[in-house]
């Protein structure tokens, strides 16, 4: 990109921000959740994370070679996609299914649409949803957790089937539960989110509007209405936190306008609430975010800010 925009000779202020730098920050911010996942689920989680990242990196490199594009690996986005995808997989998933997910994310969701910046959908979530439909049984098998009390079902599933009393909300907060590799510990994810916010990589508009909308929705329409503990359990369970801070905030697939970002967060929150309350599955974060990704062009169209000095058509006529 830098070659393309060097147009004038004046002294320019050069910002430190570049795609690879931002991606590096995201990787650093994902480390707490990754390390907790590895500690929680054992070395197989590390193996799965490495395999998924490798499949994303290799497929991006091969695709660039085949279509004679400039090698796009240095922007690190393939590593981020692989890491995010791995954090969204259950630890018992066969490694070759993770490889298929990585290839799908990179080749079909990202590269075929023109590479980073052109993809219409978050690649990691696209890959996860593909795997969820393709290998439904393996993707919802959470038997490998080291916590006997929760083996076999995620807390969300247990709340749905056996009621709120069957889960311990404190364990859901710290992450001593079953689930995908990276989604279990709310605390580890929040540490990463705070790093991203302090570094200025993301702002709070999308995550805050997402989480607030979702909490209000669950408070009013959830299985146990007007019960604060239930709402907290829903907030800590499943991929909501990971999705709100790391997936919904993806630069490429979220609106650029501030108002649009808030609308986008509300869309995500409403859809997640609808899927969790009335859907067939206990979880709905990934489908909610990729559906909202598809709405981004429309959201941006209706929230284009007025240019300075331009008067609205209607006002001019008065």
């Amino acid at each position: 990109m830098s070659e393309k925009y060097q147009v004038s000779s004046s002294p320019h202020v050069r910002a430190k921000d570049s795609t690879s730098r931002i991606m590096l920050y995201v990787i650093i911010a994902l480390l707490p959740a990754s390390l907790f996942g590895i500690w929680n689920f054992g070395l197989r989680a590390l193996m799965l994370i490495l395999v998924t990242i490798a499949s994303c990196v290799v497929s991006e490199w091969v695709f660039d070679k085949i279509v004679h594009k400039k090698n796009s690996l240095p922007d690190l986005s393939a590593v981020v996609t692989g890491l995010l995808l791995a954090l969204n997989l259950p630890v018992s998933l066969p490694w070759w299914e993770a490889v298929i997910g990585g290839v799908f994310s990179i080749v079909i969701v990202k590269m075929l649409f023109g590479g980073l910046g052109q993809n219409f959908m978050n690649p990691a979530l696209g890959g996860r949803c593909f795997l969820l439909i393709a290998f439904a049984a393996d993707m919802t098998n959470f038997n490998a957790s080291r916590y006997e009390a929760y083996s076999g079902a995620t807390p969300l599933g247990m709340i749905r089937n056996e009621g709120l009393s069957s889960v311990n909300v404190m364990d859901m907060l710290t992450g001593k539960i079953s689930g995908t590799i990276g989604e279990t510990s709310v605390i580890a994810i929040l540490i990463g989110a705070i790093i991203l916010i302090l570094l200025g990589v993301i702002n709070l508009r999308i995550p805050a509007s997402y989480i607030v909308t979702f909490a209000l929705f669950m408070f009013v329409f959830g299985a146990q209405r007007f019960d604060v503990t239930y709402v907290v359990a829903q907030l800590c369970g499943g991929g909501l936190m990971l999705g709100a801070f790391f997936m919904a905030t993806d630069y490429v697939t979220s609106p650029v306008t501030p108002m649009g970002q808030i609308i986008f967060g509300i869309c995500c929150g409403l859809l997640t609430g609808i899927f969790r309350c009335f859907g067939a599955n206990a979880e709905g974060v990934s489908f909610a975010i990729i559906l909202s990704n598809l709405l981004v062009p429309i959201i941006e169209k209706i929230t284009v800010p007025r240019a300075f000095g331009v008067v609205k058509e209607a006002k001019k006529n008065e």
């Binding site: 066969p94 299914e97 298929i100 079909i108 593909f130 439909i133 393709a134 290998f135 439904a136 393996d138």
Partner: peptide, 15 residues
């Protein structure tokens, strides 16, 4: 062998 069931569903047709 685990079949990739998405391919006999509607999205598979498009892919």
């Amino acid at each position: 062998f685990t079949p990739i069931t998405i391919f006999i569903m509607a999205p598979g047709a498009f892919l």
